[in-house]
Amino acid sequence: MRPLTEDETKTMFEKLSKYIGENIKLLVDRPDGTYCFRLHNDRVYYVSEKILKLATNISRDKLVSVGTCFGKFTKTQKFRLHITALDFLAPYAKFKVWVKPGAEQSFLYGNHVMKSGLGRITENTAQYQGVVVYSMADVPLGFGVAAKTTQECRRVDPMSIVVFHQADIGEFIRSEDTLT
């Protein structure tokens, strides 16, 4: 476990900012204590300093996870957000998409969101903007990338994709083994 390098921090923050914009600073400066990002087994964990101190007792090979896993660095040093980060993305998300109850299940199985399943979408969403996907009952279901701007969404036919799927909470079951 080690702190992120400059590059890694940059890559990760760039990725995060696609979803939560400048709200990143709310993640770092929290009123309830210091939180920090740590790298362990290529994965980035977001953890309180207090817990971190305790975790240092544990040898590297025995430590499985600490705090919340945000995602992992690929071999090509790109950062990939995991669904486990959703708890921190959802409250700060700038752009949101709500899916209709009928399309919920389809999204939870890893499919893109179609226009037909689109319930609501934040105004002024740009194309390829990172969005957090909610159910109509405001339960965060995952996140993805807007395939079209809000304006375009109004016009397209029902079967066209409006949000590209990136991660959904179905992965807690589907890819339990690779979460960490």
Binding site: S48, S65, V66
Partner: peptide, 12 residues
């Protein structure tokens, strides 16, 4: 992670 628990250290 699913239940949103953030105060754990998991070790083996």
């Amino acid at each position: 992670h699913r239940l949103g628990v953030t105060n754990t250290v998991i070790c083996n």
